[in-house]
Amino acid sequence: MTSSKDTESMWIELSDGNETDWLASFKICQRAFQNDPLYIYTNPDPDIRRKFLAVYYEYLYPAIFKDGRGILALIKTRKADKVKIVGATACSMEEDEDLAKKAFSRFADIDGEGWKRHQKHDEWEMETYVGKMHDLADEFGMKIIYGDFQIIDDEYRGKGIGTMFADKGIKLLMDAARKRLQLLGVDKQLMWYGVCDHPTSRKLSRKIGLMEAAQLRTNKPRDSKKEILYSWIFLHPSLTASYIEAARRKFRYSANL
């Protein structure tokens, strides 16, 4: 990819999993999700939301991604011999539930009411789709791989970079996940799925060929005049049509908060 002023190369590559790459990606996440519908719902005050996201992504690394439980692909640029991370996509395989619970008091200290809304949403996720996706994977003897985030730094948004690299990034993550499972002696097909809660990310997911399995109504607006929020569940097209249809059947009836 080239800019109009200087030559600028851009590519996506698999991270070796070092903490520095994760922390750089989380900095982008904090900015990218500042105006995300979920976090606006849980923490309406923008200053409090900024503080919450900083602590939240700090906690995610040991709770979800550390020690090989997460896999990261980075979008990088090189301009005048300077390499910069401008985007990332990540997936996770397991979560440290005990460690996650230890962090809960930190979130409550930032915004007690906001943390209650966040927990309520987490419960809704478990009841509405997380449990169903794991049930589906068990039925077909597959291994769940959850797409945690796809992000582009503010400076590079709106330039088609997500469309250019999103699908390749997911494939890099899935290939890495397969290799890790093989090393563990696990012979299972992967079931990659991701969730988006913004029409723009839904449009991108469709554009890169992901298969939409469900549209779920989520947060009840506190003001009835506000737009109702939705989440959309997407599956990777490497799954056979019968698996995708089985997933869609599990979501014939959506649930609300």
Rank of each mutant, 00 (worst) to 15 (best):
I170N: 11
E155T: 14
F165W: 09
E139T: 08
A137Y: 03
K159T: 09
G158C: 12
F140K: 09
R157F: 10
L172K: 12
I151L: 08
F140H: 13
K168H: 08
D167S: 14
M164A: 07
K171Y: 06
K168S: 10
Q150E: 08
G162N: 14
D153F: 00
D167E: 11
D153P: 01
I151E: 09
D167F: 10
I145F: 03
I152K: 00
K171S: 08
G158S: 13
E139Y: 03
G160V: 06
M142P: 03
D167Q: 09
E139N: 11
F140S: 10
F149N: 05
M142E: 11
T163F: 05
E155A: 15
L173C: 12
F165A: 06
Q150K: 08
T163H: 02
D135E: 12
E155V: 15
D135I: 04
D167M: 12
F165Y: 12
G158V: 13
G162M: 11
A166F: 03
I144V: 15
D153K: 01
G160N: 08
I151A: 11
G141N: 13
K171V: 05
Q150D: 08
G141C: 14
Y146G: 03
K143I: 02
G158D: 12
E155S: 15
D148Y: 13
L173W: 10
L136N: 00
Y146L: 05
I152C: 00
I152R: 00
D153S: 08
D167P: 01
I145M: 13
Y146R: 10
A166G: 02
D167A: 13
F165N: 01
E155Y: 15
F149E: 00
F165R: 06
A166M: 02
G169I: 05
E139R: 11
F149P: 02
L172G: 07
I144K: 12
L136M: 05
F140N: 02
I144D: 10
A137E: 02
D154V: 05
G169L: 04
D138M: 10
Q150N: 08
K143C: 01
I151Q: 06
A137V: 03
